[in-house]
């Protein structure tokens, strides 16, 4: 035995480079693949880098179309200007508040709902799933929804933003699939050891579900951070607006078709560098969260889908 291994060793070692050497076709593929992917990366990043460059540029350079990836007429006065606007920060704070509260509520509701409907032996499970799925295909429409929210007295409050979309059915189903694939034996063992239903959920199931929870937090947080329509419908005071409405009005407001033919008071447009700065400041935080949750994100979605 020993001699054989001794004999083998040098051969393996000498063979290793040869065996590991990629075939010509594979190497070509890798180069092409790399080039194509770099191209995709560039195409994806370019608009973003362009906006960043614009945010540091002078207005007349942007108008003349001279700003690509490098700022022209470098200045940070626009940043000072936008950051000096009290309403911008007010709305920014609202966005943070709405996102945190809404994500927390959404996570509690989605997790508990998903856990219940993942138990195949529960009575009325079909009905519970049916109720959720029904809302995926049908909804009351704009005006009935508005009437509902306003007669519940939720308009002009944070609850109009955080409650109506608390459960996303898509997220709910992904989570349900994840819970269904947790080994039932674990929960049985916990039950034998004397844990209650809530104990099982809190001490066994949730700690094992970090991946899917992180994914859901990301899904929800990004959705709430970007959302503006709910706020637009149900809020009537600018102190309550999230920053997305501020941004949307800045970008789309003064250049809508109907305002083009209108009186002199409406015609002035917002400068492009102010728009760029606002965009950069708005996407920055959510952009910073992404890389940290991303690894869960990939494994979480995979766990939900592949095994399911």
């Amino acid at each position: 035995m020993v001699t054989i291994t001794n004999d083998d060793r040098p051969r393996i070692r000498s063979n290793r480079p040869k065996r590991m050497k990629d075939s010509r076709g594979y190497r070509v593929f890798q180069v092409v693949n790399g080039a194509v992917l770099l191209g995709v990366v560039f195409v994806t990043l370019y608009p973003f880098l362009n906006i960043i460059a614009q945010s540091f540029s002078g207005e007349s350079f942007i108008r003349a179309g001279e700003v690509n990836l490098i700022p022209q007429g470098f200045n940070i006065t626009t940043y000072q200007l936008v950051m000096g606007d009290g309403m911008f920060w007010r709305n920014y704070g609202n966005t943070v508040l709405y996102t945190v509260v809404a994500t927390a509520i959404a996570m509690v509701l989605t997790t508990t709902y998903a856990y219940v409907i993942s138990k195949r032996n529960i009575r009325g499970r079909g009905l519970l799933i049916g109720i959720a799925v029904f809302t995926m295909f049908f909804n009351g429409g704009l005006i009935p929804n508005y009437v509902l929210i306003s007669s519940l007295g939720l308009t002009n409050s944070i609850w109009a933003i955080v409650l109506p979309n608390a459960i996303s059915v898509f997220n709910l189903l992904v989570m349900k699939a994840f819970f269904e694939n947790l080994p039932a034996e674990l929960e049985e063992a916990a039950q034998i050891d004397g844990l209650s239903t809530y104990g099982i959920l809190l001490r066994i199931v949730l700690p094992l579900s970090k991946a899917v929870i992180a994914t859901m937090v990301l899904f929800y947080a990004v959705t709430f951070w970007n959302s503006w329509f709910q706020a637009f419908l149900y809020l009537n005071q600018q102190e309550l607006f999230p920053v997305t409405i501020y941004l949307r009005n800045l970008i789309a407001g003064a250049s809508t078709a109907s305002s083009l033919g209108s009186g002199s008071g409406d015609l002035a447009q917002v400068a492009s560098n102010i728009k760029a700065v606002t965009m950069v400041l708005t996407v920055l935080p959510i952009l910073c969260v992404y890389p940290f949750i991303q690894r869960y994100f990939v494994s979480g979605v995979m766990l939900g889908s592949v095994k399911g």
Partner: peptide
Amino acid sequence: PTIVPMSDYEQKRSLLVGAGDAPPILPKTY
């Protein structure tokens, strides 16, 4: 004032009128 961003003013006006919740004075109507 019920404050509506100019970008989507028309839509909100339709919504409020449709829901019977509109303020009496509705300016900027083309």
